[in-house]
Design a protein around this nucleic acid. Sequence first.
RNA 1: UCCGGGUUGGGGUAGUGGUUAUCCUUCAGCCUUGUGGAGGCUGAGACGCGGGUUCGAUUCUCGCACCCGGACCCA
Length: 432
Amino acid sequence: MYDRIKGFRDFYPEEMAARREAIDTLEDAARRYGFREIDTPALERAEMWTDKSGDDIVEELYAFEDQGGRHVTLTPELTPTVARMVVAKQQELSKPIKWFSTRPFWRYEQVQQGRQREFYQTNVDIFGSSEPSADAEILAWAADALTSLGLTGEHFEFRISHRDILGGVLETYDTDVDTDDAIRAVDKSDKLSMAEYHDLLVEAGLDYDQAEEFADLVAGGDLEEIKTFAGTERVTDAVENLQHVLAAAEDFGAREYCTVSLETARGLDYYTGVVFECFDSTGEVSRSIFGGGRYDDLIESFGGQPTPAVGVAPGHATLSLLCQRAGVWPEEELTTDYYVLRIGETRSEAARVTQALRERGHIVETDVAGRSFGAQLDYADSINAETVVIVGEQDLANDELTIKDMESGDQTQVPVEDFPGDRDRPTFDDFV
RNA sequence: UCCGGGUUGGGGUAGUGGUUAUCCUUCAGCCUUGUGGAGGCUGAGACGCGGGUUCGAUUCUCGCACCCGGACCCA
């Protein structure tokens, strides 16, 4: 017996069927918005991460040197890859570029609830528009995707913030503030006592009065108050941009899921404008369900022309936790439309029936194990077959088949030449 | 990397420093090559790995692995 690699998961048919349904739900919603599916490599040059984040990040990567001496890594996130793709075909792609993909990523991390080393995300991005409508479309897709899964506003909320608001407010203080440290403190404020939170802000460079004032302002989340307080163009622009995004989200029916939450500061250094995270309303799923936002500088930093971008990437692990707790995760039960039971030397006729039903698009199984009548019926039961078509020597002797409804156990005879006939989905009821 | 809890057939469990490790379930076969969900019979299948203590370790002990939480981190 070999062990599974830690942090990697197997998906057996029942779980896979549920996952497939969930993935299809997310992707069908994306297709309705005109997002086009792409697929991307499992392996990228490690420099795509080490150049920007330093060599320490290798600790978090499945990175190695390949036979050709290249430093490569299993891809830990999609964004740099799509940025590379956009840059490579910048001239020929019509804007806005709207892409989605579902695929695994790999990070060498500590395994926790909702976090594995191999994890699946559906990434949805728009490149080439800085309009609030683009941000709103991302939010609208995210809301559509979640509600299509059966979730409602009771189950989740989008916490929306803007990168420039916190930074912009902080820079209005005369003191020399370490903005990153202060924002990190804000991000952690949930988990800290008020005093600890204030202490961290002080460590970042504010004095105690400022720390208290700043913390209150952020927690209050009153955008107009913040605009007035800061009085700078940067903050005014950021607030107005956030308001425009929310207004556009309103038009697309996504506003009701959005809460302004300036404490939602965390995240990727490449975010530049509106950022948001999705949280479980009950707080049972401790980490965020997913995050997203605007990253207007990334394409340029990858050597392309300045190209604004906004995107979101739900992780399937946390999403399925959320759905399971909300009781809307798809049923993990396999179903079978028909089982063609064969007894005696009847293979050719049974095969004809089997293939005819398969041609109609049904899930059809027949005996491949040489089992007895009873064992075949047992098996048909175990795979939740809806209808069993019995092709037995006794039936064929009368030029008949037996159609059995598995739920009721009722059965009836039908002429061989009349099955399946021109019926799309013949069942017991059609023949009584 | 750190903290806490855990690991006995495929799943769920009982138990013990000493003979054949308990029970339920599951799976396979048969009773039954013409009727499933019931029943009977037969069979398969476990003490996570390694070291130590001991005459003897699944049991005590240490280390490791893995699992479940959490911290840190989360590009």
